[in-house]
Amino acid sequence: MHTNEKTVAKILFIVAVLCGLSALSLADVVAGNGPSPLIIFDGSKDFSTSSVEFGTVYRGPVHFTHGRHINEHAVSCGKCHHDDSGEPINDLEFGDGVDTCTDCHYEETLLRGKALEGMSQEEVIEHYPNAMHELCISCHKEMNNKTHTLSAPEACRSCHGVKK
């Protein structure tokens, strides 16, 4: 790390790690003795949530760049492309015909949280978003941990952008 970066890091350590109301006492508010024991709150406002699973605003398409991965980061074809038995395919040339991911990873929904309970890994990665997340993010994490940086994107927002 360069001296400048160290300096900024030091400063940041100091600045950022994360990340008087009224004369009413809490007891007054709770007891309703204050001027406003009721808090006005809009429970009916539409925040566009689904009723069962809560989706994400970060669902724009991901722009994957073969060139960047191959040329800048020396990622081999087989890191992503594999055969029926999961073995990597490393001898691809540009223009070669390949099966599309969704031929096997055909389920369109992203499973999170409780939806994953009781499912085998094979069942989970039938879901295309889960398969891709696991593939991309695990590799990026591995790279970031190895290079001691957070230069490869891991978070939803970084790859998907915002689409409401």
């Binding site: 790390m1 970066e5 890091a9 790690v17 941990n145 001691h148 940086t149 957070l150």
Partner: peptide
């Protein structure tokens, strides 16, 4: 521990 650095080092680099 995962990243092998204090977390604020990469944070600072990206802030820069």
């Amino acid at each position: 521990k995962e990243i092998g650095q204090p977390f604020f080092h990469p944070l600072a680099a990206n802030l820069k």
